[in-house]
């Protein structure tokens, strides 16, 4: 086709486009709903949830996962658009990590030596990382689908950010099943699960995010 004819056709194309916010609301929202259904039907929500909500420690892992998911989203939003860089938004991710590490360290140092093993391993350290990855996968699919409608020009970085966002949101949902709430445990095993998702995104971004 001649270029002039192509331009005329593109200019006449009445197809409306979805805004980035709509695209991500659908992808991320759909993924989170799928993750909740998966957690509820396969893993089950923790039975003592009504009792646990009174404990502020119970909320810290949710605060951590939510903060990291928000930080991950603002980075993904930048990497989804050509010609913009995440820049200082990466500091947000770093700040959340520093906070959780400081919280875990403070708890570790203030606890008696005999309690250290319990804080570190909890009762579920073996399954924590694989289950966070499992719960995160539908969210990852949703975020990648949204990114594919955008135009990431740095696919490895965009894939990693998508993995970080999906891992954090997945960890949030997984928190309803998991009955651990020690900061030491969360700062190590939740972070490891989120890191695994970030690595998965970085490794697959090059193939998944081509356009």
């Amino acid at each position: 086709m001649r270029t002039d004819a192509l331009i005329a056709r593109l200019a006449e194309d009445p197809a409306p486009f979805e805004k980035l916010s709509t695209v991500f609301a659908k992808g991320l929202g759909g993924g989170v709903v799928a993750a909740i259904v998966l957690t509820w039907s396969v893993l089950g929500f923790r039975s003592d949830m009504l009792h646990a909500v009174a404990d502020w420690m119970y909320w810290s892992k949710f605060a951590y996962a939510l903060a990291l998911a928000i930080a991950g989203f603002v980075v993904v939003e930048r990497l989804a658009r050509p010609g913009t860089r995440p820049g200082r938004r990466l500091l947000l991710v770093a700040a959340v990590m520093v906070l959780i590490a400081a919280g875990g360290l403070a708890q570790w140092l203030s606890a008696p030596g005999a309690a250290h093993a319990g804080l570190f391993f909890g009762r579920s350290w073996r399954v924590c990382v694989p289950l966070i990855v499992l719960v995160s996968l539908p969210i990852f699919v949703g975020v990648i689908a949204a990114l594919r409608q955008m135009a990431p020009t740095r696919p490895i970085a965009a894939g990693a950010a998508a993995g970080l966002l999906a891992g954090s949101a997945g960890a949030f949902v997984y928190g309803f099943h998991c009955n651990e709430s020690a900061l030491v445990f969360v700062s190590i095993w939740y972070s490891a699960g989120i890191a695994a998702m970030t690595a998965l995104g970085a490794l697959t971004g090059r193939w998944l995010l081509r356009w």
Partner: peptide, 16 residues
């Protein structure tokens, strides 16, 4: 849809 009207257009175009 990936163009953010708060950002420069030429940077977007050039990156594409």
């Amino acid at each position: 849809a990936s163009f953010d009207t708060a950002q420069p257009f030429t940077a977007w175009l050039y990156a594409i």
